[in-house]
Design a protein around this nucleic acid. Structure first.
Lengths: 145, 145
DNA sequence: TATTGTTATACTCTATAACTATA
DNA sequence: TATAGTTATAGAGTATAACAATA
């Protein structure tokens, strides 16, 4: 385990928390699609990686409560971005899958996101950008440890 | 400007956004003080660094609208964590300062935060932790570019 | 009896619009 | 006329509690 007693780590921890909270607020407003909340986009991203998942699995991965995921999945289904199928082995559960429309949407979203971050990245030098690139997967890991 | 056309950067951008959003959700729940929202804590952190600021300055730094900052400052004042003084040169403005109680609280908060992150950090190796440490200030910079 | 998911409800945080006071 | 801050109101997102269906 990293030694958190050092002053450097204490400062880093503060910067990390503060940076994550403020940046999340900015990203929340810089939506790739006005009709999609950050969590909805994140769910679609998860489905794109995992193929499919049950509402319960999605709730655990996104760190929201089951009733919240029920609502999110229902909204995504209304928008035609996911389909719900019965679970093959357990009739209590459901299987959430992304539709083809979601794949098209994600591709478009990726393009817009890159434009936004490219604009932000104008203020970063190559070294700073490299540090972010290196930390990105660690942030993801930290998010669901 | 970093070249965002590369596949690596596209993947990093996705991981960055997704990681920041999910981690922010976790941090939101892992509050150092149940009665303090993440933005309230962030405002206190800013005041600890800058000494004092006007509500308008705080709103810009935290990326919230002025009416939201009015409410946040009012809540912090109710809790005895900030004091409001008249601006010496402009009677429209106010000066927000942290109280001694806030300093004590922040010290306690830092201790609890470190416990929480130390627990999380159990799942990271030294190399991953170093990457986070390096990226933390860049995240902060990105948050208010 | 435990678990998955849903329904009903309430809360927290933030935004927008309209207003007041000062520059 | 422009700016700093406030008041009033609305909306988005999530949580908790209670419930239904299935294991």
């Amino acid at each position: 385990m990293p030694d958190l007693d050092h002053g450097d780590d204490v400062a880093a921890v503060n910067a990390l928390r503060s940076g994550v909270m403020r940046l999340s607020r900015r990203l929340k407003h810089q939506r790739v699609d006005e009709s999609l909340s950050p969590t909805e986009i994140s769910v679609l991203g998860t489905l794109a990686r995992c193929g499919s998942a049950t509402p319960g699995e999605l709730a655990r991965k996104e760190h929201v409560q089951p009733p919240s995921m029920t609502r999110i999945v229902a909204l995504l289904e209304t928008k035609g971005l996911v389909s719900l199928e019965p679970h093959p082995e357990d009739r209590r559960q459901k299987v959430v899958k992304q539709t083809e429309q979601a794949e098209v949407m994600l591709e478009e979203a990726r393009r817009k996101r890159n434009e936004f971050l490219a604009a932000l990245a104008d203020g970063l030098d190559e070294d700073e950008w490299a540090k972010l690139r290196a930390a990105a997967p660690v942030l993801e890991k930290l998010a669901h440890l």
